[in-house]
C-alpha cells in the first residue's frame, strides 16, 4: 500500500477531487455500457413476442 492511512488514500494529496471524479465517471460509463445492451435485448424480446402473439391471433381469426 502506497498510502499510510485510509484518510490519505481518500485525499490523494490534494488531488482527491480530480482522481475520484475521474474514477466515478468511468464507473458510470462502464455501467451504462453494460446496461444499455441488456435493456435493448429485453425490449426487443418483449416487442417481438407481442408482435408474434398478434400475428398468431390474426391468423386464427382469419
Amino acid at each position: 500500500m502506497f498510502f499510510d492511512s485510509f484518510a490519505e488514500f481518500i485525499a490523494m494529496g490534494k488531488h482527491g477531487f480530480y482522481v475520484w471524479l475521474c474514477y466515478g465517471i468511468t464507473a458510470l460509463v462502464i455501467i451504462a455500457n453494460i446496461l444499455a445492451p441488456i435493456r435493448q435485448r429485453k425490449k426487443l424480446f418483449e416487442q417481438q413476442a407481442r408482435l408474434q402473439r398478434r400475428e398468431k391471433k390474426n391468423a386464427s381469426e382469419a
Binding site: 500500500m1 502506497f2 498510502f3 488514500f9 490523494m12 494529496g13 490534494k14 488531488h15 482527491g16 480530480y18 482522481v19 475521474c22 474514477y23 468511468t26
Partner: peptide
C-alpha cells in the same frame, strides 16, 4: 489507485492515467 507510487512531478493526480 492504492499501490502504485505517486509521480514525483504530478503527485497523485497521475493516477488518472490508469483510465
Amino acid at each position: 489507485l492504492a499501490f502504485a507510487p505517486a509521480d514525483y512531478q504530478q503527485g497523485n493526480s497521475f493516477r488518472i492515467i490508469y483510465i
